[in-house]
């Protein structure tokens, strides 16, 4: 009896093997396709941009202001404007973002109020960027009379990326082992000393990685800038944060919508410059992560 039963099972098993192996292969293929699809898309995009734009990249392109003549047009004002804007975005969003995260993780009690704030932050992360543009237009441009200045744009962009920075910082702070905090208390540290000397240094890798990804988003966003009325033609460099300016995405968007094909090539060259800046920033993020990771 036992023998027979065993044989039946063996047969069944043997029968099923090809199907199981086939399934295995199909799923492997499907996932490979999914991965390849994204990859190919990226390659096609990059190839297109580089084939169109690479020949238009030159020192003049970086040194000239915008122009109606494609061969004389450059992105000096846009690059410098973007750097100025980031000079506002980086300190403002870091201070506000990390401050909020520290408060929520270290100080706030686990009550309704905290949950309410937390929920709102998560929701803010999903709000379309145009809405932040409208907020910036009403609050910074009109109510606070900042006009379409670097400061107004920088503050708007800071608000836009704040939720991401807060959430990333919270995750990083939460990942700091409890033992480290307790050890600090054990040595007689106050809460502030513990946060400053133990929590923040060990969370800094996570905080900065998340933040720099958020800064990359601020560099690439166009919609809020269009809404708050950032001009596209600016042939001077700003002298303070209260000056008008233009930014890379504005310039690129303007060039892509022009009728003359030459401008589309310039847009591609502009995108390459934007990509280089983004890659530089992301490499800094990776470098920081590797340098500070697992020190504790």
């Amino acid at each position: 009896m036992e023998n027979v039963q065993k044989n039946i099972h063996t047969d069944e098993m043997i029968n099923k093997i090809p199907v199981r192996l086939l399934k295995n292969k199909i799923y492997k293929g499907l996932f490979l396709l999914a991965a390849l699809f994204t990859f190919i898309l990226l390659v096609v995009l990059l190839a297109r941009i580089f084939s169109q734009g690479a020949s238009h990249l030159s020192w003049d392109f970086l040194q000239n202001f915008a122009s109606r003549r494609p061969e004389q047009a450059g992105i000096k004002a846009a690059v410098i404007g973007t750097l100025w804007m980031m000079a506002v975005v980086v300190p403002v969003s870091l201070l506000l973002g990390v401050g909020t995260a520290v408060y929520l993780e270290e100080y706030a009690g686990k009550n309704r109020m905290t949950r309410f704030i937390q929920m709102n932050i998560s929701n803010l992360a999903g709000v379309p960027s145009v809405v932040f543009g409208l907020l910036g237009l009403t609050l910074f441009v009109r109510v606070l009379f900042l006009g379409n200045s670097i400061l107004a744009a920088g503050l708007t962009m800071s608000l836009l990326i704040l939720p991401v920075i807060i959430v990333a910082s919270q995750e990083a702070i939460r990942a700091v082992p409890k033992e480290l905090r307790e050890a600090a208390y054990g040595l007689g540290a106050t809460k502030w000393q513990m946060i400053l000397r133990v929590v923040l240094p060990s969370a800094i890798a996570g905080i900065l990685t998340g933040s720099i990804l958020a800064f990359s988003r601020a560099i690439g966003e166009t919609a809020p800038l269009v809404v708050i009325g950032i001009p596209a033609f600016v042939a001077f460099l700003p002298k303070s944060v209260f000056d008008s300016f233009t930014a890379l995405p504005m310039q690129i968007y303007n060039w892509t919508s022009r009728p003359q094909e030459e401008f589309h090539f310039l847009a591609a060259a502009g995108i390459i410059v934007l990509l280089v800046i983004l890659i530089l920033m992301n490499s800094v993020a990776v470098w920081i992560r590797n340098r500070y990771e697992n020190k504790y």
């Binding site: 915008a66 122009s67 379409n148 950032i230 001009p231 033609f233 042939a235 008008s244 233009t246």
Partner: peptide
């Protein structure tokens, strides 16, 4: 853009900005 480009060559201290809202 073309007008401003030419104008600012003559008057670099007049800061013209042009937007496309």
């Amino acid at each position: 853009e073309a007008v401003s480009e030419e104008y600012m060559m003559e008057q670099p201290n007049v800061k013209v900005t042009v937007g496309y809202s």
